[in-house]
Design a protein around this nucleic acid. Structure first.
Lengths: 345, 345
DNA sequence: TTGTATGCGTTATCAA
DNA sequence: TTGATAACGCATACAA
């Protein structure tokens, strides 16, 4: 039952040879007698020997483990992202240590510490929406553990980042709405400190500028992404003297909450008021009112890219070169307006 | 920049003491001079020293890493489950190595191998729906790596398992439907080999028996959980000479696909035909037609329980005792019929 | 109170 | 062709 896993030492003892002989035989080393080699290999197979990766990695000071920290895995965006991360990891024999921050900076910090203790080779993280302090992360880099940020990236420059630049996408979206005759376009934006929020706001303003219009700041609300906060934002928009005819939500989750609230107020969705969003999550296709338009953000691709960058950093480091990389994911794969089937009606 | 992480050896050298002195000082060992202790601890703090868990675990032949393999993390059920797993893990200083099988037995096997190589202390797994061969998993146990199955558990006895016994829940659900006047109750069940499928079927049959009725096997369909397969199942039910007035779906995802198909056929959901389901996933509250009733399966609780069992096994093992544990999660937390708000109307 | 030596599994270097 | 030994970072039994 509870047999210990076999080691080369065990094999060596049984065969009355030295451990180095066994090691060489197993590694198909040139300097080894054919007969000894086969004997060793046969016994190894018989015992189901497998090298102890722990020992090897320990010796190499490498774990082939990458820490991945996400706000909430239950959000489809992040579960898609981790699948992309996993795919790229598998291709390079890396493995994923998993943790969630639940959007709590304290928790995030604790998870980072745990992963540091576990000596992950690198860390891929999408920041908690409240993270203001980046020391614990920058400290990792000081100790030679590279950090790649994706989607929820920090506001400073010197970092490896992968994310979609949604400025242009937002301009396009505003333009699309104008083209459909919607003039009172509101936006429920995200937490103000997030770069993603600023990009959307700038795109929104730019969209209006192109039409030689000025933004009515009454139409700009923010949510901390909680349902309550989104409800409050919609409420405020609906209460305005000149309420919007279209609402751009920060992402599909905000969209779903916003629609839910509007419905409770007996608003006819997509009649009295149309909704558009970001992320284009598959799950919205099951909802009563998917966004008319959603901007694809390629979570799978972002995750994959983040891991690829991580691996290239880890490889480069061996050769001694490092330098930060910033990838706007949608420069390769442009943020696209996706029309939902229903909206073609 | 690229400083190596400090070691006790480094500290010892700087302070001109032996490594064991440093080790003792850091461990607050009694046999150590106060002065030396403070000197060591101060330098350690200054250098941001942290013990190399890799080295310690390697020595202890323990990693404090538990492998977790799930079919699809994008399913809310599993993302809830992993959160429960993570919570229990954190409380006991364990860490999670993450992998998905994507419901592919080959892939599952490969991930198991990877985790074995990484020397996880244990494995928590929810099987791929196609897994028929359990050798790779049973092999783990032979080598002293315990395996805890949850939700999608294997059909054999000798294993640690956590899952909801849905027999009773299904009986209750059938009964509830009868009470509401629905006589033609169909079921779209899951893959036939899953224990979960058998339990539902038995509950379904039992529900009819209680009313002294026999099941019409025309009302029993199976889906392999893919959208296409579910569509086919609904189509077949709708085409029957005496079509159902109520449909029980295997879980909320099957439910969503089933409803989608029915809608395409211009069925009035919950008028012509009512839908009930299992899992009670929060995401369904955003859909156009949540199940009227859904049986809670406590994914978070199951995950938490699975990890707690794992930890108790790992602790017991030190004391030399092991024995399989089977937990029907809902014996502590009975599977509950959950009425959706909409269905109260 | 502190230092020295050993071992965990493996590979690499050097010696035989 | 094979064997002995050191090294990775740490804890610990034993010696001083």
């Amino acid at each position: 039952m509870d047999n210990k896993l076999p080691t080369i030492k065990e094999i060596a003892k049984r065969l009355n040879v030295s451990v180095s002989t066994v090691s060489r035989a197993l590694a198909d080393h040139p300097r080894i007698g054919l007969r000894t080699k086969t004997r060793v290999q046969e016994l190894a197979k018989e015992l189901n020997y497998e090298p102890n990766a722990q020992a090897i990695f320990f010796k190499q000071r490498k774990t082939f483990v990458i820490g991945v920290i996400l706000p909430y895995i239950r959000e489809e965006f992040f579960s898609q992202a981790i699948s992309g991360i996993e795919k790229a990891a598998m291709e390079h024999e890396y493995t994923i240590l998993f943790g969630q921050s639940f959007d709590d900076p304290e928790r995030e910090k604790k998870v980072v510490e745990t992963m540091k203790k576990q000596r992950v080779d690198g860390l891929i993280i999408s920041l908690s929406k409240q993270t203001q302090n980046y020391e614990h992360l920058q400290a990792l880099e000081k100790f030679g553990i590279p950090v790649v940020y994706f989607d929820r990236v920090p506001p400073f420059e010197h970092a490896h980042k992968v994310y979609c630049n949604l400025f242009k996408g937002t301009v396009d979206m505003v333009n699309w709405l104008f083209g459909r005759g919607y003039k009172r376009i509101a936006i429920i934006n995200g937490p103000e400190k997030l770069p993603a929020t600023k990009e959307r706001l700038n795109g929104y303003i730019e969209g209006f500028s192109k039409k030689k219009l000025k933004v009515d700041m009454q139409l700009v609300e923010n949510t901390d992404l909680s349902k309550e906060s989104t409800y409050r934002a919609v409420k405020s928009l609906l209460a305005s003297k000149n309420p919007p005819t279209a609402i751009i939500s920060f992402n599909d989750y905000v969209h779903m909450d916003a629609v839910q609230y509007a419905q409770q107020q007996n608003i006819q969705i997509n009649k009295d008021l149309v909704f558009v969003s970001y992320a284009n999550l598959p799950i919205t296709s099951y909802t009563a009112h998917p966004p008319l338009v959603s901007i694809e953000q390629y979570p799978y691709g972002q995750g994959e890219k983040a891991m690829e960058i991580m691996i290239s950093i880890l490889n480069d480091k061996i050769e001694g070169k490092t330098g930060q990389q910033v990838v706007y994911y949608n420069e390769e794969m442009p943020a696209t307006l996706v029309l939902n089937q229903q909206s073609l009606l």
